[in-house]
Design a protein around this nucleic acid. Structure first.
Lengths: 229, 229
DNA sequence: CTATCTTGAATGGTCAAACCATTTAAAGTA
DNA sequence: TACTTTAAATGGTTTGACCATTCAAGATAG
């Protein structure tokens, strides 16, 4: 029911004060905190303790530290990026079985495809087609799989952006960055496989172009499932 | 293409060394790091710098610090919890519009319901029914909405656990903890509303009991949509 | 007067040594 | 044996100093 209370640590209190100020908007993004030697006076603490607090805030991506004269702690924009770190850690430490990750990805990317289909503008579709064209070029010219994989990644990310929901965008980034560590070693890079892969992408984009969310979702899930051996 | 390189900061290097040791398994969960005064010698750095590194590792939930003799930094189990912080931050700072969060939740919980239906054992279903019973009791006895809301939360979390996929479990925790800040103020607590709400839950559990993933998913999405007015 | 160079001040990064607060375990005592 | 006392271990904090980087004002050269 209750969580054990950690003993009072001064730097923790400082972290909370500054964090609350940022979250509540009292400290706006871009604003600069006073230099350490002033802040330590304001809080009536030592510089070392203040710096421990700043390290935590920096790790939380709430502030950036700039060096030199006129430098100091600058309040960052709170972006959905903050969830990337955690997921990366989980995957890198292999505490999340590949199966879980694949399952989760299937869910996320399926819905991304659905929403993208429902919301894509004409320009969005044109952008997707452009990416497809580049992927096909790299296939036709036998430029190797690296160029193709890069185009593939761009397509997935673009779909996420089209949804307009940044949560999807950044969670997908985290998944992509990490799941590839598993796949990179096992993926077949034969041209026939890539061609099949490319056809999948074309079908997905077609569904998006037609605004057919259900089909886009289904095709995406099929596509991802095929990758998983 | 490339990210700007931060100037070398010693504590950053220490963080990476220890983190890599943990992720790679060289440092197992539960293991204790040497005391600060020894570690600082091992790294050939000052204690203050070492402590800044420890603060970062602690914030990342990679280590716990214990006070007193025999205390020190203890390697934590890397759990999916690490993603909770980021999401909480996003929501609390209102950088993620409620619409995005609701959309994301619909996706996540829908699939949770589906997987739960496909994977629930007899005991799991019995547990769900038990929670339902308690929810109904609190309704019948007019114990107020607080007891009911608690049972509701337990049901959702139990479904997530039944999926067996911890990513769902913890992401849902993060969403739940935060989305309720929005809802708590607006939710109708009239009995008629709660009764309707309860019937939804029953239908979902029924679908789970029948192993009907598609229905469970649909009912859950309908249920959540109804909440979001 | 302008452009470049020099210099010094501001500021974060690091180090060192000391003391405090908490916890554990050993030693002492009833 | 059981309780109390004490000392050591260890994280938490303070102070003061010095280094490294950056920026801007002033000096210098053209």
């Amino acid at each position: 029911m209750f969580k054990p209370v950690k003993q009072n640590r001064i730097f923790q209190d400082v972290v909370e004060q500054i964090q609350d100020a940022i979250i509540s908007g009292q400290l706006a993004a871009g604003e600069k905190l006073p230099p350490e030697r002033e802040l330590k006076e304001a809080f009536s603490i030592s510089r070392g303790t203040l710096r421990e607090a700043l390290r935590v805030l920096e790790q939380k991506r709430l502030i950036d530290i700039q060096l030199g004269a006129g430098g100091g702690a600058i309040v960052r924009e709170v972006t959905p990026e903050v969830i990337v770190d955690g997921l990366s850690l989980l995957v890198r430490s292999q505490k999340v079985p590949l199966e879980y990750l694949k399952e989760f990805r299937l869910d996320i990317e399926g819905n991304i495809a659905r929403f993208a289909a429902e919301r894509a503008s004409a320009e969005d579709v044109a952008g997707l087609r452009d990416i497809l064209k580049r992927a096909k070029d790299s296939l036709d010219r036998h430029e190797g799989w690296e160029a193709y994989v890069q185009a593939d990644a761009r397509l997935h990310m673009t779909l996420a952006r089209i949804t307009g929901n940044t949560i999807y965008e950044y969670i997908q980034t985290a998944i992509h960055e990490n799941i590839n560590r598993y796949y990179a070693e096992f993926l077949e890079h034969e041209e026939s496989v890539l061609c099949h892969h490319y056809k999948d992408l074309c079908e997905i984009v077609d569904a998006v172009a037609h605004g057919d969310g259900e089909t886009a979702c289904g095709k995406m899930r099929l596509h991802l499932n095929r990758l998983g051996q």
